[in-house]
Design a protein around this nucleic acid. Structure first.
Lengths: 230, 230
DNA sequence: TCGTGACCAGATCTGCGAATCCGGTCACGA
DNA sequence: TCGTGACCGGATTCGCAGATCTGGTCACGA
């Protein structure tokens, strides 16, 4: 029962590097094994199939991304205010090419890998995320169809580079500011929030993200063949 | 010198219908001619090439779209307020499948047709559009990178259906309201604008859009082979 | 003078056998 | 017990010749 996490990580590193360079289709298990310095069979000691391997990679990436957000949130609870939170998520996402491919749905890069087995628990966590923010007082009460509107408003910023290459000639930080402005005024009350409230909401979101990471890790482990047979 | 506009329109109607049904690649000039009830050669009396024909179609569609907006603006000057203007543009666009394909950049539908020969004048008109709105007082003064931010914020709503089919289960009008809300609070001053100012700005935008249509028609005529040789 | 469809040539598609690739297995060796 | 790479077979790609398609032309007829 090989629980050699270090080796598994090295294989995922290799997979990630090759995925970025060549895209899902052109990366072979043999390439990955060679790049990781192990035999092909060894890869299959960790994952049952190729897609399981790459799904693991994507899950690991998602965890890292959420951890980045969580770290910043812990350093400064004010980051929980929606406009800061989305600004943060935006910057963190663009710093991780794989995560970016995931949110923009880059099919070339991902193959048919998109079928994120969003477990029921993760779906539920996501909904709770919205309801926590909605009840928090950090969001305006008059936003229609909150989930849809927030999603759509933010989506454009993630896709703008692809769709409007013409007007995209500004710095990433400035684009993040543009997103922050939009969220700040369209989705938050005009007045600054009570710091005590902010801290309380930050704690709840912290708990939620921590839980999300737990879910991810669960999913990660489920993709590891070593747990199954053998 | 065949200036038979009615016939040209019939041909464009046919081209549009077939374009929607089959996409650019699978529509042949022969199909278009047959559907329009004319001979193939007749199509070439109006347009020098296949792409010229379809570019004409797209320009005609754009004109119709702008005219729709203009009509609503004339019926009610209040439509010039950015959140109403974008709401209007959104609804009008989704009512016209071809125009929608144009803004979402549906390559399947459009082929390599995208090379919109945005004449210098049209580019200029677009910039004047932003500066008129910016000076108008109908927009907040504190929006960073106005053009980029406004574009990105609105873009997501046009693409949300494709990218988030899951959360898209609501009515078109409600989605338009969601867009309107976002624009209203992120890009406009809190207080209602002075009706006199609104009317003045509406006039200027009216002039600008009228000019835009003129530019379009110019472009349209330039695509008509009848003007050239013969 | 205006409209047409037969016609042309280049491009694209089709069929298909051969060659290659690659995910997954497993017998063997360390 | 754990790791490996030779090996298998299904799938994909390649090469290529023949068939088909289609944008664009133009001589002819109304």
């Amino acid at each position: 029962m090989p629980r050699d996490t270090a080796r598994a990580d090295r294989i995922l590193d290799a997979a990630g590097e090759l995925l970025l360079r060549h895209g899902y289709r052109k990366v072979t298990i043999d390439d990955v094994a060679r790049q990781a310095g192990v035999g092909k069979g060894t890869v299959y000691l960790h994952w049952k199939t190729k897609v399981a391997l790459f799904q693991s990679l994507l899950v690991r990436e998602s965890v890292a991304l959420v951890e980045d957000v969580l770290g910043a949130l812990r350093a400064d609870p004010d980051e929980v205010r929606p406009h800061r939170l989305l600004r943060l998520a935006y910057l963190v996402t663009f710093r991780r090419p794989l995560a970016l491919a995931l949110v923009t749905g880059d099919t070339e890069m991902l193959g048919a890998l998109r079928e994120r087995a969003d477990s029921d628990r993760m779906q539920e966590t996501n909904e709770r995320f919205y309801s926590v923010l909605a009840e928090s007082g950090l969001l305006r009460a008059d936003v229609p169809d909150l989930a849809y509107t927030l999603n759509a408003a933010a989506l454009g910023f993630f896709l703008a580079d692809d769709y409007k290459p013409a007007v995209s000639g500004i710095d990433r930080e400035l684009k993040a500011d543009a997103l922050a402005h939009t969220i700040r005024y369209a989705f938050e009350p005009p007045e600054r929030p009570d710091p005590a409230v902010v801290r309380a909401v930050a704690d709840r979101i912290d708990a939620l993200l921590t839980e999300l990471i737990t879910d991810y890790r669960e999913l990660f482990d489920a993709l590891d063949a070593a747990n199954a047979s053998r």
